[in-house]
Amino acid sequence: MSAATLRRLIVVSLVVLWELLPRLGVIPELFLPSLSSTIAAGWNDAGEYGHALAVTLYEVGVSMLFACGGGILAGAIVGSLPRPRVLIMPMVSSLYAVPLVILYPVFTVWLGIGSESKIAFAAIYGFLPTMLSTAAGIQTIDPQLLLAARSMGATLSQRLTRVIIPAAIPTVLSGLRVGGALVIVGVVVSEMLISSAGIGYLISRYRTILDSPHVFAGVLLVLAMAIAFNAAIKWIERKASIWQTGTREGQRAADEIQAGTIQPATA
C-alpha cells in the first residue's frame, strides 16, 4: 500500500472515530461531541462563525504580510551583511526562546483589544522564524557557487537573481512555512486570551459555557485554515521551483529536495 493511500486511510478512520466514539458513548459528548453534532452546531450559527472567520482571516492576512515580508527583508539584510549579523543575530536567536505570549497583555494595553493587538503579536511571532531562516538561507549559500558565477562574468544583480535567490528559496520557504503557521497560532491564541471577536474568541466563549459542539466547530475552522495554509505553501513551492529553473523540469528536482532525498544548495 502506498504512503498516500495509507495517509488517506488514517484520515478517514480518524473522521469515522470522531463520529462513532462519542455516539457509542465511549467518550462523553462533553469531552468530544460527535462530528455531525459539531458540524450541525457550526451550521446553525453559520452567520456568527462566518463573521468570526472573516475577522480572523483579516488578522492572519495582515500579520502574514508583516511577518513574511518583514522577515524576508530583514533576513536578507542580516544574512548578507556581516555587521548587522554580528549585532543582531545573537539577540534574535535568544529572543526566539522567549515565550512571546507574555508580551500580548502589554500589546492590549498599547493597542486595545481589537485586531491591532492581535496583528502586532502574531506578526512578531511569525517574523522571527522567517527572518532567521532567510538569514540562514543566504548565509549558507556555497561561496564556491558565487565564485563560479563571478568567473563566468555575472554582474552583481545577475548573481542576486540567478544564484543567491534561487539558492536561498528552499530555506526561505521552510521559514515561511513555520512563520506562517505561527501567525495562525498567534492570532487564534491572542483571540482566545483577550478579545471581542474572531474564532479564538468564539472558542473561548463557548468553552466557558461548556458548549462543546460550538467549541469544536471553532476548532474545525482553525484546522481548515491550517490545512488551507499548508496547501498554499505547497503551491508556492511548486511555482518557485519553476521560477528557479525557468522550466518545468526543475519541479521534479524540487520535489525530491523536499522529500529529503537530496540536500539543497548548501554544501
Binding site: 556555497d142 564556491q144 557557487l145 565564485l147 563560479a148 558565477a149 563566468m152 562574468g153 555575472a154 554582474t155 545577475q158 540567478r162 544564484v163 534561487p166 539558492a167 521551483s241 528557479q244 529553473t245 525557468g246 522550466t247 523540469e249 526543475g250 528536482a253 524540487a254 537530496i262 539543497p264 544548495a265 554544501a267
Partner: peptide
Amino acid sequence: FQEPSLFPWLTAEENVEFPLAL
C-alpha cells in the same frame, strides 16, 4: 574549479548554458 560548483537547481544543460544566459 576543484569542486564542480554546479547549480543544483539547474539541469546539466542549463548549467552549461549559464554563462551564455548571462
